[in-house]
Amino acid sequence: MSKVDLSKYKNTLSRKHQIARLLWSVVWLVLARPLPRSIGNTWKLMLLRLFGAKIHAKAVVYSSVRVYAPWNLEMHEYACLAPEVDCYNVAKVTIGAHATVSQKTYLCTASHDITKSDNPLITAPIILKDQSWVGASAFIGLGVTIGQGAVVGATASVYKDVEFWTVVGGNPAKFIKKRVIND
């Protein structure tokens, strides 16, 4: 077997970033994860804000949520990150008012450029507009915008923007129907 030259594989995230991430991980693990679902939302939001998140006081973040970089998280009023959501926000994640990210969803703002031999890290933000809903165990890829009022079905994999007030599902996610509200 030939030797691989590892010198060209450089971590593009700074040492300061790595230390901040380590500190954040320990703080969340010790001071938020043990809290039961029914208490501590104000405390959890305060911890996220302490590390740079922009979060409305009426947002909800469950204790089992994993946030990679709180300084890249913005949540508006009544936005929700449900149990076991993995928010891999190397780039910014914005969750609009009354938007819900259901349990076990993976929000992924980073990948690698496979057109280059060293596969460098690439990032792009994820935006969930107001009143959108991402169903359980979905995957939302980097650079995706979920339009206002759109619904992403459970277990869907979304790699392209979702139009406002539409329902998508599947892998890859495809248009199912327009969303109609019957109040």
Score class of each variant (00 low, 15 high):
residue 41 N to T: 13
residue 41 N to H: 08
residue 87 C to R: 02
residue 37 R to H: 12
residue 68 Y to T: 09
residue 83 P to N: 04
residue 25 S to F: 09
residue 71 W to D: 14
residue 66 R to L: 12
residue 83 P to D: 05
residue 17 H to D: 15
residue 27 V to T: 15
residue 22 L to H: 10
residue 65 V to W: 04
residue 79 A to H: 01
residue 86 D to I: 08
residue 84 E to S: 01
residue 21 R to C: 12
residue 75 M to A: 07
residue 22 L to Y: 12
residue 50 L to H: 06
residue 88 Y to T: 03
residue 55 I to S: 02
residue 76 H to S: 09
residue 71 W to F: 10
residue 17 H to Q: 12
residue 21 R to W: 12
residue 36 P to W: 11
residue 36 P to H: 10
residue 71 W to K: 00
residue 45 L to S: 04
residue 13 L to P: 08
residue 33 R to V: 14
residue 13 L to D: 12
residue 63 S to L: 05
residue 83 P to C: 00
residue 75 M to N: 07
residue 14 S to R: 11
residue 41 N to K: 11
residue 65 V to N: 05
residue 25 S to W: 11
residue 19 I to A: 03
residue 80 C to I: 11
residue 48 L to C: 13
residue 20 A to F: 03
residue 24 W to S: 01
residue 13 L to I: 10
residue 53 A to P: 00
residue 35 L to E: 09
residue 66 R to K: 13
residue 47 L to A: 02
residue 56 H to C: 08
residue 45 L to R: 14
residue 30 V to W: 06
residue 69 A to C: 15
residue 65 V to K: 05
residue 22 L to P: 03
residue 48 L to D: 06
residue 33 R to P: 06
residue 77 E to D: 12
residue 80 C to D: 00
residue 38 S to F: 15
residue 49 R to C: 14
residue 28 W to T: 08
residue 30 V to C: 10
residue 43 W to V: 10
residue 78 Y to E: 05
residue 67 V to Q: 02
residue 60 V to F: 11
residue 60 V to W: 14
residue 36 P to N: 09
residue 27 V to Q: 07
residue 21 R to N: 15
residue 40 G to H: 04
residue 78 Y to Q: 02
residue 16 K to E: 11
residue 57 A to W: 08
residue 70 P to T: 07
residue 34 P to Y: 01
residue 77 E to K: 11
residue 37 R to C: 08
residue 13 L to K: 13
residue 23 L to D: 09
residue 55 I to H: 02
residue 18 Q to T: 14
residue 80 C to Y: 02
residue 49 R to L: 07
residue 69 A to G: 03
residue 85 V to Q: 01
residue 74 E to V: 05
residue 51 F to I: 08
residue 38 S to I: 14
residue 35 L to I: 09
residue 60 V to T: 12
residue 20 A to M: 13
residue 32 A to I: 06
residue 54 K to S: 12
residue 52 G to N: 05
residue 74 E to P: 00
residue 18 Q to F: 10
residue 59 A to W: 03
residue 42 T to I: 11
